[in-house]
């Protein structure tokens, strides 16, 4: 099944790997091809040996949880009465907010795409969950000593063919794995080929600085993927997020910190020293009257 999916991407398998600039791997999900069978979920569960999932008040409605790294969300389709299925997973951003947010550096962005999690470093503060614009990282609330859980997309979840278990178990080729550049080209090709079907937008191409998981569809996926439109970005006064990442947006504030420390020490130290000197001089001049008063 997965073979047929890859056959559709002649650019992917064939020659020319040496010419490529970026080796960033990515996943392209085409919502028009997804039938919602959840084979990807099953493949992920089997490959990662995930535990049993059960509903609880702390789990979200989108199906992702500490025991599920990917899920299928049903959204209303273009025509009334129809529906589309959208696979949710970690977006593996080019410049991830979670990586910038983690105070111990437990989350890292690897060169070939995946955002990986080092459970040995994590202290469980859940700042990555708050910082992620897509609300992806999940927590093992049911455990006394919980860890963060999210889609890995690294070597551990790749099956024999080199693709992750989720994409290789997709029966319709709705979700495929490959080099990001190729997949963007492929997505663009599909949109250009059938402009009457697809919305002319690749979700994840530029938003938040670009992601390694990209989506195309015949209806807007912004709500389910939590990717606002350009207008919504502008309305929230963060218009630059249509093409740049959140860490880039707040970079200036990070840069302020060392100057704040050095400047604070210098200014306050000078004032304190000057005032003290002034007081000592005043005291020596007017005797010891002031000491009794204070």
């Amino acid at each position: 099944m997965s073979k047929s999916a890859e056959d559709e991407l002649p650019v992917l398998d064939a020659q020319g790997k040496s010419k490529r600039k970026s080796k960033t791997k990515a996943i392209l999900t085409d919502a028009t091809k997804c039938i919602g069978c959840e084979r990807c979920v099953q493949g992920c569960v089997e490959q990662n040996d995930l535990p049993q999932d059960f509903p609880a008040h702390f789990k979200s409605n989108d199906g992702l949880s500490g025991a599920r790294y990917t899920s299928i969300v049903e959204v209303p389709g273009k025509d009334p009465g129809t529906s589309r299925f959208v696979r949710r997973q970690c977006m593996h951003c080019a410049d991830p907010t979670c990586v910038a947010a983690c105070l111990v550096g437990a989350l890292t962005k690897s060169a070939d795409g995946p955002v990986t999690y080092d459970a040995d470093k994590c202290i469980g503060c859940r700042y990555c969950m708050l910082a992620c614009p897509f609300s992806i990282p999940r927590y093992e609330y049911e455990k006394a000593l919980p860890y963060i859980r999210k889609c890995k997309m690294d070597e551990t979840c790749r099956v024999a063919g080199g693709a992750p278990a989720c994409t290789s178990s997709c029966p319709t080729g709705a979700t495929v794995f490959g080099l990001r550049e190729d997949l963007i080209t492929e997505a663009r090709r599909r949109i250009d080929e059938r402009p009457e079907l697809y919305v002319d937008h690749i979700w994840g191409e530029h938003e938040f600085g670009g992601t390694s998981v990209i989506y195309i569809s015949d209806s807007s996926l912004g709500d389910v993927l939590k990717i606002p439109t350009d207008k919504e970005f502008a309305k929230r006064a963060v218009a630059s997020l249509t093409h740049e990442s959140i860490p880039h947006l707040v970079h200036n504030w990070v840069m302020v910190t060392p100057f704040q420390f050095a400047g604070g020490l210098a200014i306050l130290g000078t004032i304190a020293f000057a005032k003290r000197r002034q007081r000592v001089m005043a005291e020596t001049a007017s005797g010891k009257d002031e000491e009794d008063e204070s």
Binding site: A100, L103, C122, I123, G124, R126, L145
Partner: peptide, 22 residues
């Protein structure tokens, strides 16, 4: 915090880009 016995981690594992680290 989920794993409070690792409270010493930020002293040795640095990520200066993080506001929480600061």
């Amino acid at each position: 915090v989920g794993l409070p016995h690792r409270g010493w981690h930020p002293f040795f594992m640095w990520n200066p880009h993080s506001f929480l680290f600061e």
